[in-house]
Design a protein around this nucleic acid. Structure first.
Length: 408
RNA sequence: UCCGGCGUAGCUCAGUCGGUAGAGCGGGCGGCUGUUAACCGCUUGGUCGCAGGUUCGAGUCCUGCCGCCGGAGCCA
């Protein structure tokens, strides 16, 4: 930089990470690989960056997690933030265009058995000095007069709204206190949960498929540069994979048919395959990655391995549930047609040792003008995980919460 | 939580049979200059995750703990 440039003496303090104001003229560049450049006439150092932890080179994602306050400054995390933004917008656009109502469901809940995993308990009691006489703490003195938790799903409340206002969707944070140490799990993640009035399982599958295709298509259209970046630097083939999914139909298969395929495969699976067993990750991978090489929607699982609120099929053995499985990530959507028949729902709860009294308000939806309805949950981070080809879900959310990790 | 692997310089890693710790990058100094993760020379840089144990001697072997990674379970 010529000495004539105003402020050039600041150059000694301008290194990687510094913030500057540069003035000049945008001109055509003679250099290969870029069309324009800034011919600087003045430069000012706003904030120096001595001992900046991010060198001008490649860093491991593992290291970047230890500097989560700086990693959004890297090219990869910038690209992820833009894709996340686009996916979020596409979710809203898709449902808004079809007349769904965006509703907010509570983050705090008093229901301690929503059945979707371990919950975080919330309290204002002094944990060092709990009110008690020998026995357990007296929770009637707690803020809500009883136990309170962070939600694991907005589904039950969404059903309330959907049976009043027609189709709705929620989009918010969800919390699971499972001690899961994997590349696919977070303790805090964002979930989209549409609840569709007057809808059966077949209609639900149609929504799920067109929903995912819309998200993938928008990302390829509006985040093309970022997707090319992921294709070149993170995982080769992610663009073609999305393109292929958009252009082809999802495979639809019943659980029973899937079991038959697995039994006929001749494969020696670690976990045995038989009707009634829950499908293991190895079984799902075989179906999505080897047999069909495409997203697979599995339906009609045995009632014994699914939640109480899923609608019992006429065969009396299976429920109208569906899982959307994608290659590499596994389950990206889980959903079902809901049991709208009061008597059947009560019987299912009793079979699964769930106290119907705890769900009196949920049951009343079936008592007063019940309608068929269905819904599913889509994990936002699992979706961005799949789209970008990133190896670890902790790297597709700015501030991941996992066991023993909440510093940033 | 279970199984397996790993933890060495600011970062990425090597370290043989147990014998007093090394490279590249980064940082600093100098040179060069149409650069794009520049280049050339010199230089700086260590509680070998923590705590014990075995040994004349431990980065290396053993035990426990902590953390990270991969897989599994749970699930979005």
């Amino acid at each position: 930089m010529p000495d004539a440039v105003a402020g050039h003496e600041a150059l000694d303090d301008i290194n990687t990470g510094a913030s500057v104001v540069a003035e000049g003229e945008i001109v055509a560049s003679p250099a290969p690989g870029q069309e324009t450049e800034l011919r600087v006439t003045g430069i000012e150092l706003l904030g120096a960056a001595p001992d900046y932890p991010l060198a001008k080179k490649r860093h491991s994602f593992e290291y970047l997690r230890t500097v989560a306050h700086l990693r959004p400054r890297t090219n990869t995390f910038g690209a992820i933030a833009r894709v996340r933004n686009q996916v979020s917008m596409s979710i809203h656009h898709f449902f808004q265009e079809q007349g769904y109502l965006y509703v907010q469901t509570p983050i705090l809940t008093g229901s301690d058995a929503e059945g979707a995993g371990q919950m975080f308990q919330v309290t204002t009691l002094d944990l060092q000095n709990l009110p008690r006489d020998a026995g357990p703490a007296d929770l009637t003195q707690d803020f809500f007069g009883g136990p309170a938790f962070l939600t694991v799903s907005g589904q039950l409340e969404a059903e309330i709204m959907a049976t009043a206002l027609s189709s709705v969707y929620t989009f918010g944070p969800t919390f699971r206190a499972e001690n899961s140490n994997t590349s696919r799990h977070l303790a805090e993640f964002w979930m989209v949960e549409p609840e569709i009035a007057f809808c059966d399982l077949s209609g639900l599958m149609d929504v799920a498929e067109s929903f995912l295709k819309r998200i993938f298509s928008d990302v390829l259209t509006y985040c093309r540069d970022d997707m090319d970046f992921f294709d070149q630097r993170i995982q080769a083939g992610v663009v073609d994979r999305l393109q292929h999914i958009i252009e082809t139909g999802f495979v639809r298969l019943t659980y029973t048919e899937a079991i038959e395929i697995l039994e006929r495969s001749g494969r020696d699976f670690e976990f045995p395959v038989y009707w009634g067993a829950d499908l293991q990750a190895e079984h799902e991978r075989y179906l999505t990655e080897e047999v069909f090489r495409a997203p697979v929607i599995l339906t009609d699982y045995p009632a014994s391995i699914k939640a109480f609120y899923m609608r019992l099929n006429p065969d009396g053995k299976t429920v109208a549930a569906m899982d959307v499985l994608v290659p590499g990530v596994g389950e990206i959507i889980g959903g079902s047609q809901r049991e709208e028949r009061y008597d059947v729902l009560v019987r299912r709860m009793q079979e699964m040792h769930i106290d119907p009294q705890h769900y009196w308000w949920y049951l009343e939806l079936r008592k007063f003008g019940s309608v068929p309805h269905a819904g599913f949950g889509l994990g936002l981070e699992r979706t961005v995980h799949f789209i970008t080809g990133m190896q670890n879900i902790r790297d597709v959310i700015p501030f991941p919460r996992t066991p023993r990790n909440i510093e940033f």
